[in-house]
Design a protein around this nucleic acid. Structure first.
Lengths: 234, 234
DNA sequence: TAGGAAGATGAACGGCGTTAACTATGGCAA
DNA sequence: TTGCCATAGTTAACGCCGTTCATCTTCCTA
């Protein structure tokens, strides 16, 4: 726990400058515009020097993806914290925060939540770790839905269906989020997340252009329909 | 309407061989593995020769994407035709066919339904044409949901919400599918398609690995939940 | 049968990731 | 203070890539 030496300070500074430049390229030219030579050029260095900091371009991209996951997780977590104490409002705030970040950062979204590049595949491999960024990202959603379930149960598919189709295949989720996640919570989470992801992903990738001129409005409608299942009806 | 000349026959044959080879590269190495030089090498040609057939690599990829859209549309249409006359069964068959094609052809899925490459962006631009492959792909879904709605209305979000959030922004959809699509059908289609897309996309891109070991089972459960809304309950 | 269009070629330009050999430098131990 | 060595950075090179240009061959047609 000693103060970092001068060498160490320089090293971490260069390291983050590399990633900053990589992100700039990502934003301006998409994932495949990230190149060691362009990064080095912009930094006044030569490309091979970067190999002192990353094993390969893929490793750099993987590290960048990790950072982005953390950034997105923070955005979502902050939105939840600012949303008051009503779990339904928390859920809406998190979903909106996720969409807004994604729409505002399409290239970053593409990198971590789109078609995985070679460098990203490895990133997804060991996600059974409970500290993996992906797991961390899902946690606030899971917790909120858990609160909702404990507060007043919402309708779910028949238990028999959930047992057969879901409970038998949840080892990875339990590894990250603990064994005590009720099957109903796991269902509501996965069902909701896939809807959220589908909608946002289609908007970010312009796969809704042919149908709708204001994806944000469609999102709000679907969000309304989703949280509606959690509010008991007369 | 005359018989194709020898030149023309050779040309179309070379053209489709190029695309065949491009797809082989796509499948074995992902979208960014498609390269003119590799295609030419495999065909016993040199790279510049391909410029007689396509303006650029991006144009080739765009053409390939068009073919793949048609292939996927055919798969879905065939599944519908083989599913009998019950619209709910038709819907399930189409959804399953979509998933199966996607899981079996992850690289192709990534190309046409994932993070758009530069060459794909142009492909998405003029999708207000009613013959655009994307519109064509959605048509059998839309038609089936339309039949369901006419047969016996299913529950929807409040009309006021649909009017405000959806009806005002449906010009593109109406351009492709006609003005007469009821708002309830548009809603059920978009809602269902985004769920289907989200789930399949996450499975294909391995974004469910951290949660579920058998995405197919989750898919079946969600499909069940989705079509359930179309079957009137006592 | 002459000529022009279409198909294909080789060379070249600038870009890329990556490796290898080499140089300069900062910080620590003797 | 001196000597050393790990660390950071360099240049040069290899083999990919898309693309352009000038050139050559082949086929079809007028």
């Amino acid at each position: 726990m000693s103060a970092p030496t001068r060498r160490e300070r320089l090293r971490t500074s260069t390291l983050s400058e590399i990633k900053k430049e990589a992100r700039r390229l990502l934003v301006t030219g998409g994932p495949e515009a990230i190149s060691l030579r362009a990064i080095a050029r912009e930094m006044g260095m030569t490309a091979p020097a970067i190999y002192r900091y990353f094993d390969s371009l893929d490793a750099l991209i993987e590290a960048l993806a990790g950072d982005l996951y953390v950034e997105l997780s923070d955005v979502v977590r902050t939105a939840k914290a600012d949303a008051g104490s009503d779990p339904v409002e928390q859920l809406k705030a998190m979903a909106r925060a996720f969409r807004e970040w994604s729409v505002a950062h399409p290239a970053e979204f593409a990198l971590i939540l789109g078609n995985p590049l070679p460098g990203i595949v490895a990133f997804q491999e060991n996600c059974d770790d409970e500290n993996h960024p992906g797991v961390e990202f899902g946690r606030p959603f899971m917790e909120t839905i858990n609160v909702l379930w404990l507060h007043h149960p919402y309708p779910t598919p028949p238990r028999s269906l959930m047992e057969e189709r879901l409970a038998a295949h949840l080892q990875p989720l339990h590894a990250g989020h603990g064994e005590k996640v009720p099957i109903e919570v796991a269902w509501a989470f996965l069902s909701g997340w896939s809807r959220l992801y589908g909608l946002v992903s289609m908007e970010v990738f312009h796969h809704l252009r042919w149908a709708v001129s204001d994806p944000g409005a469609l999102f709000e409608m679907e969000l309304h329909a989703y949280v509606d299942q959690f509010t008991p009806h007369a």
